[in-house]
């Protein structure tokens, strides 16, 4: 039953995620944090950070983490299969039936508007996650640095993740944490 729940919940996240890994965050928050309490917002951020610097699709990495936490190795595998299941079905249908799916005007219009909605949902998610992640001045500095640098320069997320992990240890050792 637990495995079935994991599969269905992640399949739902897979169906409802439009436009890449970050668009998944608001949906994950709702399904995993609010609804099932399988992880906290903080844990979600931890998984997301590790998912950025490990190989593979971030959505799958996050699913494996949460699945593992709830149901061990099998849970991790089942959650990952759950999140990719809808994609496989939908894309196979589209590739088989509609070869020019992405050129249909109505599809283009719908997705232009969905992107607008995704902007708003991500904005709300960031505000919510901010509370769990940025609790002192040092964390605020890290946030601003990562945000600013990744907006203006083309730097790989791996660089940020590794640098911030080290910064976290150094800042804690210096006793800046919590001030």
């Amino acid at each position: 039953m637990k495995y079935w729940d994991l599969f269905i919940s992640f399949a739902k996240v897979g169906v409802m995620t439009f436009g890449g890994g970050y668009a998944m965050i608001p949906i994950l928050e709702r399904e995993i944090v609010d609804r099932h309490s399988w992880a906290t917002n903080e844990e979600l951020m931890d998984y997301y950070a590790v998912g950025q610097c490990t190989p593979g699709v971030i959505a799958v990495n996050t699913a494996t983490f949460i699945g593992h936490k709830q149901g061990g190795t099998l849970g991790g595998i089942i959650a990952s299969l759950g999140i990719v299941f809808p994609s496989v079905v939908i894309i196979t249908l589209i590739a088989g039936i509609l070869t020019n799916f992405a050129d249909i005007p109505a599809v283009k219009s719908a997705f232009a508007a969905i992107r607008v909605c995704v902007c708003v949902l991500i904005f709300n998610a960031v505000l919510k996650l901010w509370k769990g992640a940025v609790k002192d001045k040092a964390a605020l500095c890290l946030f601003l640095l990562v945000f600013g640098l990744s907006v203006f320069f083309d730097i790989s997320p791996i660089v940020f993740v590794l640098a911030c992990a080290i910064a976290g240890i150094v800042l804690t050792q210096m006793g800046v944490r919590g001030k």
Partner: peptide, 23 residues
């Protein structure tokens, strides 16, 4: 624990930057 203290604001920063790209 200290590494994750640094990683959380990093994740939020990366998500915010990705969001800005969509904007």
């Amino acid at each position: 624990d200290a590494a994750f203290y640094g990683l959380r604001p990093c994740s939020v920063g990366l998500i915010a930057a990705a969001g800005l790209m969509v904007v």
